[in-house]
């Protein structure tokens, strides 16, 4: 028990890294997801197909494999990037694809008559999107985007396998240290419980928020 309390600052540092990585990924993936999602609904066949392939590929491959691909592929083609960046790119690729799919669904769920009416009123494409479609679509897409973000926070734990020292890794290092010192073994059990609790504290409010928004939408 003492050993755990001693290494709390180290664990907190890992926890901070997890939150920092999550925030970066959230910003990148929401921005990228909205752009790709809007591209997916364009009339232009090439752009639409390209974004569809992007979405389908990165939703179909497991997140872990995407991470490995980015981690090993980029250095071989000449981009030496730190672990943090490859984690950010890998997770964002996966999240952008998922957010884009949600955005596409919400944009297409707005009745077509709305677009036609705003064209008839003389608005161009950009204005139609800005003032008619996106305000309505945002309300519908928000619950599912927050759901995806909850998953994104959880997925940051995968970056431990490409060598990031985040919350899970810091706990594992602590465990190694404690078992090496030969103190009591229940520490392993307690530390993993602590990690579970740590992620729960971040994710539970998010999923409550998402459910709340969803319920409000139904009424």
């Amino acid at each position: 028990m003492n050993a755990i309390i001693e290494s709390l600052p180290f664990l907190l540092k890992g926890f901070g890294f997890t939150i920092w990585l999550s925030i970066c990924c959230v910003i990148v993936s929401v921005l990228g997801g909205v752009i790709v999602g809007v591209l997916r609904t364009l009339e232009n066949t090439v752009i639409r197909l390209a974004s569809k392939i992007f979405i389908d590929v990165f939703r179909g491959i497991p997140t872990l494999v995407v991470l490995f691909l980015v981690f090993f592929l980029l250095p071989t083609i000449g981009f030496q990037i730190p672990n943090f960046l490859s984690a950010l790119i890998g997770l964002s690729l996966w999240a952008i694809a998922n957010v884009a799919e949600a955005v596409r669904g919400s944009i297409q769920s707005i009745p077509k008559t709305q677009t036609e009416v705003s064209y008839a009123l003389g608005l161009n494409y950009v204005n139609t999107m800005m003032y008619v479609i996106i305000p309505q679509a945002t309300k519908r897409v928000l619950p599912s985007i927050i759901g995806i973000l909850t998953n994104l926070v959880q997925s940051t734990s995968l970056t431990v396998l490409i060598g990031n020292v985040e919350f899970l890794k810091s706990a594992q290092i602590t465990i190694e240290r404690i078992t090496m010192m030969g103190s009591n073994n229940t520490a392993v059990f307690m530390l993993y419980t602590l990690v579970l609790a740590g992620y729960f504290i971040i994710c539970y409010p998010l999923s409550l928020w998402s459910r709340n928004l969803e319920n409000r939408l139904k009424v």
Partner: peptide, 18 residues
Amino acid sequence: RNTPLLVQIFFLYFGLPF
């Protein structure tokens, strides 16, 4: 639903034996 699957797997594999 609110904890990462990887942590659950590690918990079951490394945590439970103790």
